[in-house]
Design a protein around this nucleic acid. Structure first.
Length: 429
RNA sequence: GUGGGUGUGGCCUAGCGGUUAAGGCGUCAGGUUGUGGCCCUGAAGAUCGGGGGUUCAAAUCCCCUCACCCACCCCA
């Protein structure tokens, strides 16, 4: 019988990865707070309607990616595929409309999409997301982009490129859809089956197709930017003005469409320069239509999400990841208990040191001193604390420097066990 | 969901039809009595992803399946 493995597309995060993940998470939360955003944590499971009624029937998320299940009570639940709709559900549920607007929120956690795994694409993925809910100000769009790029910069990812677009309001897109229908109708025969389906369901997404990217009809298609309403255009121009004021470089890419239907006006994506495959590190946009789709009052909002695995991937590629094997977190001290009474005395000594904030690995009794010393050395600890019967009887411990990094502290010395607390400062890294 | 590649002890790799599947790293234990890092010795650990087939004989050939990787799709 084969042993169980982690589910397909889902992965363990091992101790050697933990330093990098903690660094990314801490940096993300710190940057979010610098912009006065506060954390919200929502359930990993939601009423399926939260996602099914908001994402849009033609979105991949609804078509094939949501993990759906029925609980024992018969309720239709979903493993959350994305964060925005869940945060908005919480916004409505807790009456956050009566807080000062916009409400600035961030989240960090796992999401689930039933997709075919490949590099950078997983069935359980972690995202950091930031939302500003309750404002239609283009300054908020720019603030989110600024926050996102600042985060990447703090992580050392300084060579990423930002592409932005405006897809107008739902009304604008309806009108533009008519224009596209007239444009693509004569070409239906030569477009891919995928595009033909999109023609019926969500015609804008034909522009987003890679299959037909070089199709003459796609290349010659009208740009939504030429069909924005006056308000849409003013909003988009204001976003660009704010980005300029912030010194943020960007490219306008009219082909960015977004998979989710609740987006409106500004949308953006951030990619590494050598963008191929699953390369988008983070993406965002304005979703003025989402609250209504959830049954709430019209509430403009904007936000972004970024994939932790993809950040980690890019940091590793650039050699930016902290905590390689040499840097792994080592204890300050390893105890080496010997003989009959050594183990008890070593345990007391370890307690004293830990109380003083020193990280102590308790060596297990019963090993030869040679083996114990080898293990202590391999741990990377700066000191070995040897406690045998002689020390236990005398109320002392032997403190032995292992690293030789301090020229004034290379000889092992015998000290009273009671002095360990006072010595602690010198033992901590 | 579609197409292609890969799959040998914890990790990396050799073997690519023929006796008990080899090496490196790692792990554990020793190298005389309570002292590490180098070195030496030894041990544990793989029925070669799983299942089926071809053959006197398969890790080595064929089929199925699973997982991972790559591309598409889509996006984080």
């Amino acid at each position: 019988m084969a042993s169980p493995r982690a589910p397909r597309g889902m992965h363990d995060t091992l101790p050697e990865d933990a330093d990098l993940w903690r660094f990314i998470r801490d940096t993300a939360e710190r940057v979010a707070r610098l912009y006065d955003y506060r954390q919200i944590t929502t359930p990993i499971v939601e009423d399926a309607a939260v996602f099914l009624h908001t994402a849009g029937d033609e979105s991949d998320i609804v078509r094939k990616e949501v993990y759906l299940f029925e609980d024992r009570g018969g309720d239709a639940l979903a493993l959350r595929p994305e964060g925005t709709a869940a945060v908005c559900r919480a916004y409505l549920e807790h009456g956050m409309a009566s807080r000062p607007q916009p409400v600035r929120l961030f989240y960090f956690g796992p999401f689930f999409r039933y997709d075919r795994p490949q590099a950078g694409r997983y069935r359980q993925l972690w995202q950091f997301g930031v939302e500003a809910i309750g404002t239609d100000s283009p300054a908020a769009d720019a603030e989110l982009i600024d926050l996102q790029l600042t985060l990447y910069g703090e992580l050392g990812l300084t060579d990423l490129s930002l592409r932005i677009n405006s897809i107008g309001t739902a009304e604008t897109r309806r009108a533009f859809g008519k224009v596209l229908e007239r444009h693509f109708l004569p070409h239906l025969g030569t477009l891919s089956t995928d595009s033909r389906r999109r023609f019926e369901t969500n015609i804008l997404r034909i522009l987003d197709s890679k299959e037909d990217a070089q199709h003459e009809a796609v290349l010659s298609a009208p740009s939504i930017l030429d069909h924005l309403s006056a308000e849409d255009r003013a909003h988009f121009e204001a976003v660009q003005r704010h980005l300029g004021d912030l010194g943020i470089a960007y490219a306008i890419d009219p082909r960015i469409v977004r998979g989710l239907d609740y987006y409106a006006r500004t949308v953006w994506e951030v990619e590494p320069p050598d963008a191929v495959g699953q390369s988008t590190i983070g993406a965002g946009g304005r979703y003025d239509g989402l609250m209504e789709a959830l049954g709430g009052p019209a509430t403009p909002a904007v936000g972004f999400a970024t994939g932790i695995e993809r950040i980690a991937l890019n940091m590793r590629e650039r050699g930016l990841a902290p905590g390689g094997p040499a840097e792994e977190r080592a204890p300050d001290v390893v105890t080496i208990p010997l003989g009959e009474r050594g183990p008890a005395a070593a345990a007391r000594a370890a307690r004293l040191l830990r109380d003083a904030g020193v990280a102590v690995r308790s060596g297990l009794p019963g090993r030869s001193m040679r083996a114990a010393m080898r293990a202590a050395d391999a741990s990377g600890a700066r000191y070995a604390l040897i406690v045998g019967d002689a020390e236990a009887d005398a109320g002392t411990v032997v403190l032995k420097p292992l690293r030789g990094d301090d020229p004034d502290d290379t000889e092992q010395r015998t000290v009273p066990a009671g002095d360990l607390g006072a010595l602690a400062t010198g033992l901590r890294v």
